[in-house]
């Protein structure tokens, strides 16, 4: 089973990289970009076949290492 993890900055946390991207998009002539927030995408290949157990396992991975919950949120998507 594969876990797809999206890690995003919490609202209110300054994202200078997102801001730089927004600025660069404007320079390239893409108008109407209000804001850009940058995040991470992590794909994990798991032995576990039980969805509930896999979810629990990846949840712990996120809380312990993959995300820093002081500034980040995470969302887990499981695919067979």
């Amino acid at each position: 089973m594969k876990a797809r993890v999206h890690i995003t900055l919490k609202s209110g946390v300054l994202d200078p990289q997102g801001r730089a991207i927004a600025h660069a998009l404007g320079t390239l002539g893409f108008g109407g970009v209000n804001d850009v927030r940058q995040g991470k995408y992590i794909e994990i290949d798991l032995n576990e076949r039980d969805k509930a157990k896999a979810k629990q396992q990846v949840d712990q991975m996120c809380a312990k290492l993959l995300a820093n919950t002081v500034i980040e949120n995470y969302a887990i998507d499981l695919v067979d």
């Binding site: 300054l14 200078p16 990289q17 820093n68 002081v70 500034i71």
Partner: peptide
């Protein structure tokens, strides 16, 4: 800080 010995986190410099 990442190890939890201190609160908060160090982010990218505001100037980048």
């Amino acid at each position: 800080t990442e190890a939890g010995l201190l609160p908060g986190i160090l982010l990218r410099n505001a100037s980048l």
